[in-house]
């Protein structure tokens, strides 16, 4: 990173419309939306690892053992990413990882949707209403929104109220 010797002096801070403070506040919102989502989802999944492993197997993408390993690992990865995003530490790196993970989720959901697989134990839609694959489009829409948060942060990782800002300006 020390090779940018040709930058004109006095312009080490970014310029242009995206240097506007609003951009950095949007970054805060992106961090919090993505970070809180990852933290909550991670905690919920970590509390029910057996179910998380089973749901991961239900995607029928990874072989049995790998699906179990991924199902055990992923909730804790989500928690780590969530905490880092909320406090704003290593924002760009966490946003890259969080975005890749979101991309994996989108691909996974699109894959089960196209194969007509229903990921739902069928246990929570009582009152005779059975879950259908119709919910997948909302899942994908939600994840695309979250992916956009991650993309924003990869491009503009400088945000207000972040540990990055406090530590390195």
């Amino acid at each position: 990173m020390s090779s940018q010797t040709d930058a004109p002096s006095g312009t080490s801070a970014p310029t242009g419309w995206y240097a506007h403070p609003v951009t950095e506040w949007i970054g805060v919102a992106a961090r919090l939306i993505l970070g809180i989502t990852y933290l909550v989802a991670g905690v919920l999944k970590a509390q029910q690892l057996e179910t998380t492993r089973m749901d991961t197997r239900a995607f029928q993408i990874l072989p049995y053992d790998l699906a179990n390993i991924w199902g055990t690992f992923m909730p804790f990865l989500e928690i780590v990413l969530g905490v880092l995003l909320i406090v704003g530490l290593l924002t760009r790196m966490t946003a890259v990882l969080g975005g890749l993970l979101m991309l994996a989720f989108i691909i996974g959901i699109a894959s089960v949707w196209s194969r007509g697989i229903l990921i739902e134990c069928g246990c929570f839609g009582s009152s005779g209403k059975l879950p259908t694959t119709a919910a997948y489009k909302w899942d994908i829409l939600r994840d695309v929104g979250l992916l956009l948060c991650a993309v924003w942060l990869v491009i503009w990782p400088r945000t207000k109220l972040s540990a990055d800002r406090a530590l390195w300006g």
Partner: peptide, 17 residues
């Protein structure tokens, strides 16, 4: 030195995460 970007996160921190 003036125009050099400020040091970002240390390699050690990134490595530990």
């Amino acid at each position: 030195a003036d125009s050099k970007p400020k040091d970002g996160p240390s390699k050690g921190l990134i490595a530990s995460v």
